[in-house]
Design a binder for these strands. Structure first.
Lengths: 163, 163, 163, 163
DNA sequence: TTTT
DNA sequence: TTTT
């Protein structure tokens, strides 16, 4: 029941290896630094380059895949939405952050393999931690991911899909 | 693990009321006829209009919402993917169809309310029927749709979401 | 010769009337405050709304059209790119801004009429001023806009277009 | 003054080398066959792949760049719009075609270099020819492409751009 | 600050 | 077949 569309599509290269963090519950939070460069011609006809560095967040299973396969320099397709955040530091100064919250990621350029999809856009906030998820917590969660046979939710049987 | 991106974004007006069909299993198939008009200037400076009529398919719950709220003339946002189909008629002639398979829909222009999301992109093909879904089959299915509290699949608990 | 894609698509409502400024040379800079609201279900099944306020910039002719036709509350489609800026205030504190630089705008919901396109993405920076463009400067510029009969640039004659 | 949005974003691989044709006036028409593959899980949990083959048209300078740099197998980003066409063959049978008319193209995966932009969406129709453009016609046209210093059209001087 |  |  959203009102409005907030959609971002990026194709760029990673400036660094993915930064992985995990919540206390073991959910992955992967942060990418992604460069997109545009070029225009100067009034003297010279090429002017401008690079934007996007901070991209991938959560959950999508973040795990990103952390496992992406590397510095790698080219990647990201689809997601823009999220603006404001924090007040201990010094009382407000700080603003803009994140791209990914809900689709695809490695480009052959080397990597396919893509991945997942992750909703807006969730409750909780303390995050940089401790890696304890094996016994995180690992079973991954394996618990069910092989969903369709994306319609639970209101259809699998043999009820007409195309 | 898709390889490639196939994404369509449309904003247009409906040429007709939605066309509703249901599978034998009771799944809704809603077909929209959606116009997008572009304008360019002629070599004589005159405005030339060109209208494309898109055949948009919405399946399952998304199709039901479309069928309930959309009407002829209504402006709508559609996000989905392109699907090309080929059928051979009884006369042996091959016929080609291009559909936009929606995975997001949003009514525009105030009158209608919010948006809806859902429906995957590619599924098995099955015979379709134009008989409305029998009450005793379809109704429970709709009600069976669980109030999913997140989109991460089943590998997180609800209280494990850090933002 | 850009390297990368930096694309934003927004559909939202204006929180205020457009803010118009003009460069010393008379170019319009229109700033919009655009809300997009997403909804998700809470772990208790309750609807949680989150609204992002996007700062959208439209330059030149596109900005003039926006300033003329858009109003507070109006629903609009915006396509553009993300631009991150950093300024150091007089207090020496760095401030960060994120803008959506529009290159397409379309009014939604009937009331307004069509759309408009224009404006490149990256240009030289120059001091901006809030004084309206002087008539004798701005007006001729607007009229000077030629009725381009195609978008291929100057390397084709008008009668050389094959479709 | 378009009414509606008709936007397609594709990332895929070429099934063949680009097919080049030229109008009598020397304008390039480049046709690509572009594959996008999506994967879903079967009801038995097996991966089901579905490949869509898009027919992408690039005109003018954009088509020339595509013809020069793209090759079979190459991965490419395409942005454009959908165009539906209907022709009646000599046998009196109507034939339907769906094209993606590109207005942006970018080579992916390192090997190729940057991207290119250009080409409007809808133009007059004219007979097309497969003869290559005569050197004396096409070559000067390419060189005649002016080094536009901005995209605002002719209504601003170059030093009138505020960012 | 919008909208439904 | 829509819409402005």
């Amino acid at each position: 029941m959203a009102r409005g569309i907030n959609k971002v599509i990026l194709v760029g290269n990673l400036g660094n290896d993915p930064d992985m963090k995990y919540t206390q519950g073991g959910m992955a939070i992967c942060t990418l630094s992604l460069a997109t460069t545009s070029v225009r011609k100067d009034k003297d006809g010279q090429q002017i380059e401008k690079t934007e560095w996007h901070r991209v967040k991938l959560f959950g299973k999508l973040g795990e895949i990103a952390g496992e396969y992406l590397k510095k320099g790698r080219q990647v397709y990201i689809e997601g939405s823009i999220r603006y955040d404001k924090f007040t530091g201990q010094d009382g100064v407000e700080k603003y952050f803009t994140d791209i919250v990914a809900d689709e990621m695809q490695m480009l350029g052959g080397g990597g393999g396919g893509g991945a999809e997942g992750g909703g856009r807006d969730f409750d906030r909780e303390e995050r931690t940089s401790r890696p998820a304890p094996r016994q917590a995180a690992a079973p969660r991954r394996e618990a991911a069910p092989a969903k046979s369709n994306d319609f939710g639970d209101d259809f049987a699998d043999d009820d899909i007409p195309f």
